[in-house]
Structure formats: C-alpha cells, structure tokens
Design a protein around this nucleic acid. Structure first.
Length: 574
RNA sequence: CGAGGUGUAGCGCAGUUUGGUAGCGCGCUUGGUUCGGGACCAAGAGGCCAUGGGUUCAAAUCCCGUCACCUCGACCA
C-alpha cells in the first residue's frame, strides 16, 4: 500500500473534543471518522486491525469447537417477545416498523436468534454440547456514547452461544471459553487485563465474568485483593464485615448541630469525630412507585451501592427529592423515624452499632450514642455498601484495592432462561425432554482495538502490537526523487510483500521528519528507512517503534531480518 | 433523562462583550529553493459563521426556538 493513496486524514493537532488517548490518536492518525453520535466509519488501517482481531478470535473460537454462523441484524418483534425481552429492555433496543407495519428490532445481542436457529435443528442430547458464534454488527441505542470506539452505538461483536445437557458440562466448557478469552487478549497484545466476577444484569443467569483492561480511563470499577487474587466488579463486590469494638453503651443524647447535614459537616461540627461512628441516611424513590420513599441507612464512612440496593428492592431506584416529605433532609436517623410510606433498608455495617451519631429526625439536631438493639432494632439487614479501598477482603482479610477498567469481553453461564422461555428441548438419555443449559460469550471488536490503543500508545502516537498492526513495516523513502533510492525501495517493497510482510510505503515528496512523525503517529511496529546516505553503505535502517531500537542492516539481509523481528514480536500462545 | 459547555474552511482557533463587506496557524493547489525528526519563499483554492424565526438601514455578533457535539451524572447484554 502506498501512503500517498491511503484515504484518511492525519492531523498534527488533536481534535478538541476527544478526551482519551485512543480516541484522540485514532482520529489524528486517520483511522476513524465520526458519522453520528456513537456511530463511526473505519478507514482502511482500522479495518485491517479489526480484521486481524477478528481472525484471532475466530481461530480461538474454532479451537474450542465453535461453529461460525451468521444471525440477522434485523429481527421480528415476535422473536423477542418469546424471550420476554421485547418489553423488558428499554430504549437501548431499537424498535421500528417495516413497510407493512410489522414491528422489527435491531439486534443488540443474539440469544433469541441463536435459540430459534438451534431449537429445531437439535433434538437429542447426543448432539450436545455445541457452540455457535458469529462476528457481526450490533446496534444498541446507548444513552451516552463516549471515548471514540470505547463506547458506541453501532459496533462489531463476536457473540457465542453454547448449549449443554448438564450444569457440570456447561461449567467445563465455561472454563474452556475463559481460557480461550485469555489467549485472545494476550494474542492481540493486551497486557494489563484481568477477569472479574460480575453482575449478570439483563442477561439473566448466575455466574459471569468480565474481562477488564485495567486503565484509569475505564468506566467500570473493580475491587481487587492483592493478597488472594479476588477480583470483582464493584457492582457485586463485598468487603468482610467489621465488628464494632465492645464498649459501654452510653446514654443517648440530643445535640444541636445547626446547618450541619452531610457526614463531613456533622463530624467536623462535633470536633472531627470519625465518620465510621456516624449513621448515614440516603433516600431513594423506586421507579414506578409514586408512594414510598426508601431510606437506606449505612455507616457514615461508606457509600451506597445502588446496583445492590436495586436487587434488594427488586426495582429501579432514583435519588429522592425530599421537598414536601415527612422526612427532615440532612437530619434523618433510625430512631423515631416517621413510618408512613417509608421503606427502611439497613446495611450490614450497622448491625451491633455502638454509640453512633445519627440524625434526630428534627431540623438542626442529631443524636449521640445511638445503639442498635437498644435505640433502634435491625430485624433484617442487607449488603448494600460500596467497597472502599482499604476495607478487608471477605476471603483472606487483606486490604482491598479499587481500580478502573474497560470491559473488553464477558462470559456468562446463562442457564435455561432462553431455552425455557423459547421452548427449546432435547431428549435426554432417559427419553425425557429437557431444556438445554446455555452459556454466552461476547467480545467487542472495536472496543478491543481501542483498548489496545489505549494501553500501548505513547506521546508520539499509536503503537500497535505486531499481531494486529495494520501493516508490519513502514517503508520510509527519503528522497524518492533519487533514482537509486527509488529503485532500491521498489525492490525491497516487492521482496517484502513476496515474503508475506505487509508494507505501507511512504512515497511522498516530504521531509524525513514529516514521514517519521506520520509513521510514529500511525503506530506501525517497524520502520524501514532507505535514503541516499544509507545507500552509500549498502544498508537500510530498521527501527522498532515500541523499543526505539535501531538496527542497521545490509540490504541483502533486510527481508530475513524483518521476518525474524516480526516473528519475535508476535505473541505466541499455542 | 438531569446539570454544564461548545458549534466560524478538512483540523486547531480568533472575531461575539461594544452590530458595519469573514480572519489566523496547520493542511490543500501551482512554481521555485531545500532534504535523516513535522523546511522556506511566492502565488492561489476553500466558509449561507449549526439551524429556523425575530429585532435592525445593517446580524457570526442582539433576542426567542430547535438541532448537533463534548464533559459530569443517571442508564448500560
């Protein structure tokens, strides 16, 4: 490929609205162009990377006996009504009508299509287990796309579905899929990624893992135990319960606290008492319930985990506005709390609480020495707390750390949610009809590409791992107007292509610095320079993008040398 | 969906307060001189100033509406 003919605008200045590295650099290097919010065109270099990622995924899926299929982007409403998701999913699912007024949806995931496809074709347990997958366009009408290709509305995704007779068999296959994912991410050149236990959300099912690239720009929060290796998404993570020190229960007392309302204000007002000696109240409304106010009580130094609270309440929660409420915002406490239309949820952290400070349910007053079991009683408590760094690991007791990550893939043990609702059965060995147990496994291709970019890019630009680089070599022609240089580069270009090396040749009449900068920006792993100077000594120069290492190499050996370096730089797993 | 911000040439921006014939840098075209870390000179091309309505002799600029994009939050298999 000649860079002079490559379509895609490279710019020296960064787009002002791109905030993260991968987004900014992929635009600057001419890889992607925005079409509409969360909808992108990929230029040739980005498409080449995507294809390479897809091929690595394909190899690993085939290696665990996957069968590549293709399911439709557009599906009829009826199919999604069978699973119940036509109504249970919100606006992310795009619904529209065809010319005959028939309701259609755009596929955001393909459990329905996979089950519809498999249920008639498969009748016997002897045909199980099997896995079918596809690499195809998905559309999800996200509320807020962001970060270039990190979070988009239209994207290419590999989605796989496995079907099993027993839970044991699913678990065995799940482990294989887990290992395949690990290989995929390593092969595409990702380094700092981990698998975490996660919330299975709208997919249903029980056990699920998310593969996360650890990076400060990630939108997911992960709780990690450096000691025992526990890794969980914040949505499901818990810390070990902490017992209260045994101390004498002092008499409860009312105190004037004035305008101090938030925990930080109250602790300060009371002479910097520790926040963990206070009780925090957070109020919510349940979506679709116009009557009740939820008051969640938690130890003052902790935060409410709304994902967990949602599960306790079995409904969506939104922060409550307390204007015209019976509650005294800022002074809410568990002692003599008004009861009408109030739902109280206690966090486990308040069990056995001793000598705490809480709101007095009275403007400008708090209570001191509030004791659980004496001044108020917890009949039932839940884990609704967010883990904060330094809290104890529930497994080994070591202090936990909290990091951000980008979700680059996920695997779910789905169970029979779809095979039951969509009536897929096979006969087992006893001749009895059973619902196969499913697993599903997804990887976003564009997000994987952006994630690698995010991890590998430096101040000069992108920096692709050899295995997914759009071209292996950037053949930089200094003085293409020099006939000797021109002849040599044409010869090298042809020889490299013959040897299976992908070459992007910079044949433009530009200065050396200009070309070097473009090469660095585009992130091509190897740079091969041919110039009048080098031609005198019958050598060319090979520079490795990632290490900055420069190798001067006789022309005759260039091709072999590059093949060797290319091989050395490719992550080999199997 | 809530809060804030921004829309002027392909990209980055000035001009808006105080209305008066649309500017700069990069990039692009042509010619010349350069040539190993984003060269220089000269001459060019390119914009209904997001959009619809108002006010005015006159609107990028003032007023009202709409849309798009960005950030934070909510949501997110």
């Amino acid at each position: 490929m000649l860079i002079s003919k490559l379509v895609g605008e490279r710019t020296k200045t960064a787009p002002s609205d791109a905030v993260i590295k991968s987004h900014s650099l992929m635009i600057r290097a001419g890889y992607i162009k925005l079409v509409a919010n969360g909808i992108w065109s990929l230029a040739a270099p980005a498409k080449r990377i995507a294809k390479k990622i897809e091929n690595i995924i394909r190899e690993e899926m085939d290696a665990i006996d996957g069968q590549e299929c293709s399911f439709p982007v557009v599906m009829p409403r009826e199919l999604w009504e069978e699973s119940g998701r036509y109504s249970s999913i919100g606006d992310e699912l795009v619904r529209f009508k065809d010319r005959n007024g028939r309701d259609l949806v755009l596929g955001m995931t393909h459990e329905e299509a996979a089950v519809q496809f498999a249920r008639d074709a498969v009748n016997s347990y002897q045909q199980l287990p099997f896995m079918i997958y596809q690499i195809q366009t998905k559309f999800r009408d996200e509320g807020r796309p962001r970060g270039g290709l990190i979070r988009v509305r239209e994207f290419t995704m590999k989605d796989a579905y496995s079907f099993h007779v027993t839970q044991e068999d699913l678990e065995e296959y799940y482990k294989k899929a887990y290992d395949a994912y690990d290989r995929i991410f390593r092969r595409i050149g990702m380094k700092n990624f981990i698998a975490v236990k996660s919330d299975s959300g709208m997919m249903g099912g029980r056990i699920s893992h998310e593969f996360m690239l650890l990076t400060p720009v990630g939108e997911d929060t992960i709780v990690i135990c450096p000691e025992c290796g526990l890794k969980e998404n914040m949505e499901v993570a818990s810390a070990a319960p902490e017992a209260y020190a045994s101390e004498e229960k002092l008499p409860m007392k009312e105190m004037f606290t004035g305008s101090a309302k938030e925990i930080a204000e109250v602790t300060k007002f009371l002479g910097d008492i520790p926040a963990e000696k206070t009780i925090k109240a957070v109020c919510y409304n349940i979506k679709g319930d116009g009557v009740h106010t939820v008051v969640a009580f938690i130890r003052g130094d902790l935060e409410i985990n709304e994902a967990k609270l949602k599960k306790v309440l079995k409904g969506e929660v939104v922060p409550a506005s307390l204007t015209d409420s019976v509650l005294t915002a800022g002074n809410i406490g568990p002692v003599s709390l008004p009861e009408k239309d109030i739902i109280v949820v206690y966090d486990n952290s308040l069990r056995g609480a001793v000598n705490m400070v809480s709101g007095a349910n009275k403007p400008e007053y708090h209570l001191k020495n509030v004791n659980e079991g004496r001044d108020f009683t917890i009949k039932e408590s839940f884990d609704i707390a967010k883990v904060s760094p330094g809290q104890k690991c529930p497994v080994c007791g070591a202090p936990l750390t909290v990091e951000n990550g980008i979700e680059i893939g996920n695997i779910f043990q789905l169970g029979t949610k779809y095979t039951e609702s969509m009536k897929m059965t096979v006969l087992n060995a006893d001749g009895k009809a059973i619902n196969p147990i499913m697993g599903c496994y997804g990887i976003g291709v564009g997000r994987a590409m952006a994630s690698v970019a995010e991890e590998t890019a430096d101040e000069k630009g992108l920096n692709w791992p050899m295995s997914i680089a759009p071209w292996h070599v950037y053949l930089c022609v200094i003085r293409p107007d020099d006939p000797a240089v021109k002849a040599k580069t044409d010869e090298l270009y042809a020889a490299l292509e013959r040897a299976g090396v992908e070459v992007l040749m910079d044949d433009r009449a530009q200065s050396a610095g200009f070309k070097f900068a473009d090469c660095d920006l585009m992130g091509i792993p190897l740079r091969l320079v041919v110039s009048p100077r080098a031609i005198q000594s019958d050598t060319a120069e090979i520079k490795i993008r990632s290490t900055q290492q420069t190798i001067t190499c006789p022309y005759a050996e260039c091709v072999d040398r590059i093949l060797q370096i290319k091989d050395d730089m490719t992550v080999k797993i199997r």
